[in-house]
Amino acid sequence: MKKIGIITLNGYFNYGNRLQNFALQEILKSMNYEVETVRVEEESLKKLGKENILRSVKRIIKMLFFQRIREDKKYKNIRTERFMEFSRKYINESDYFICEGKVPEKRMLDFDYFVTGSDQVWNPLYNSQSSIYFLNFVPDYKRISYAASFGISDLPIECIPNYKKWLSELAHISVREEAGADIIKELTGRKAEVVLDPTLLLSKEQWLSISKESLDKPNQKYLLTYFLGEVSQENEIKIENIAAEKNLKIVQLANIKDKGAYIADPSEFIDYIYSAELFLTDSFHGSVFSILLEKPFVIFDREGSKKSMMSRINTLLSTFDLVNRKWENIDNTDDIYNVDYKHVKPILDLERKKSLLFIESSLGLDK
C-alpha cells in the first residue's frame, strides 16, 4: 500500500487543528493510502532571526491582552492532555519529529507523497517561516498542498523571497481561501485551486460517529459560544440578552472561567455544537461545524484582529450563500434562529466533488 505523510501544525489546543488533521487523514485513507502525520518539532524550528523572535513575542503579548485569559495551569494541562488523548485515539502520528536540518532521509523514502495543510501552515507567525511546511525535504513531485492557509492577506516583506521559491516548487497547490490564491498568483503567477477545508469533506454522520457527550454538558437548553478573540463588553451584553430571551444557559468553550466546557476535547466540541440551541462564534471551524451539523449560528468579527483574518470565513460564507449569518446582517432576533440550509447540500456536494478531484488528480488517481 502506498503511503502519504501529512505535515500540519501540531498544537494540542485548537479544535479546528485537530479535526482538520483527522479529516484529511480519513479522506486519504478512503483513497486506499496508508497515512501518517509527521510531527514537526516546533521548538527546533527557531532558525529565526531576532526580528522574528521579537514579532512572535509581540504576537503572544497581544493575544494575551485581547483574550484577557489568565489560564489556570491545572486546567490548561488537563485540556492539553485531553487533546493528546484524542490524537492518540484518532490520528496516526509519527513517533518521531522532524525540523529544519533534522529530517531522517531514510524514513522519508517510505512516503510516496506528502500533503501540507490544511490550517494556517503558511502563516509566518505560526510556522517560524520554515521550509518544512512547504515540503522542501522531498522531491518536487511528492509535494502537494491541500487547503493550506496563510491566515493573513499580506506577507511580511522578509518572507517574500523564500515563499516565492518554496511555492513555485510545489507540484500541486491548493488553498483554503481566495486571499491565499491571490498571494500565490502575485508571488508566482500560478493559479491555486481554492478547495474546501478537509473538515467539510466528511459527512455529518461521520462527525457524529466520533462525537461524545461531555459529563459537564448542561441538562437544560443552552447557548454555546466559542470566541478565539476578545469578547467586548458590548457583545457580552448582546449575548446575555439573547440567552435571556429564550431562557438559555450560556456555555463558553474558550473561556477558562467556564472550566467544564474549557477542558472539552475535540469529540465533545462536536457534540456541544450539535446539542446547542444557538452557536455564537468568531471561529472558522466553529462556522464549518455549524454548517455541517445544520445548527443556528451567528458569526462575530474577531476583536483585535485585522480584517484579513476574516478572509477564510468570508470565503466560506460566500461559497454556501450564508453571509446573512454575520452579526451585522442580523435584522431581528427571529433571524438568529431561522437558518435555511436547503440550498447548502447541492453546493456542498459540488464543492466536495471539486475538492476530491483535486486530491485525486494530485495523486495521479484520475489516470
Results as ranks from 00 to 15, higher is better:
H172Y: 15
I173V: 15
E178D: 15
G180K: 02
D182S: 13
I184P: 00
I184M: 00
K185A: 14
E186G: 03
G189L: 00
R190F: 03
E193G: 10
V194L: 06
L196V: 06
D197E: 11
P198M: 04
L200Q: 12
S203A: 08
E205D: 15
Q206C: 09
S209Q: 08
S211H: 14
S214R: 07
Q220K: 14
K221L: 13
L223R: 00
T225M: 03
Y226W: 03
F227N: 02
G229W: 00
V231K: 03
V231N: 03
V231R: 00
E234S: 10
I239D: 01
A243H: 02
A243D: 02
E245Y: 13
K246I: 03
N247R: 09
K249Y: 09
K249F: 12
K249R: 11
I250D: 11
Q252G: 07
N255E: 14
D258M: 09
A264Q: 12
P266W: 05
S267A: 13
E268T: 03
F269T: 01
I270A: 07
I270W: 04
Y272F: 15
A276M: 12
A276L: 12
E277F: 13
L278R: 02
F279T: 07
T281D: 12
D282P: 01
S283I: 04
S283V: 09
F289W: 08
F289L: 06
S290D: 08
L293V: 03
L293I: 04
L293N: 01
E294F: 12
P296R: 04
P296D: 09
I299S: 07
I299Q: 12
E303F: 14
E303N: 12
S305N: 14
K307I: 01
S308Q: 05
S308W: 00
S308N: 04
S311D: 12
R312F: 04
R312Y: 07
T315V: 12
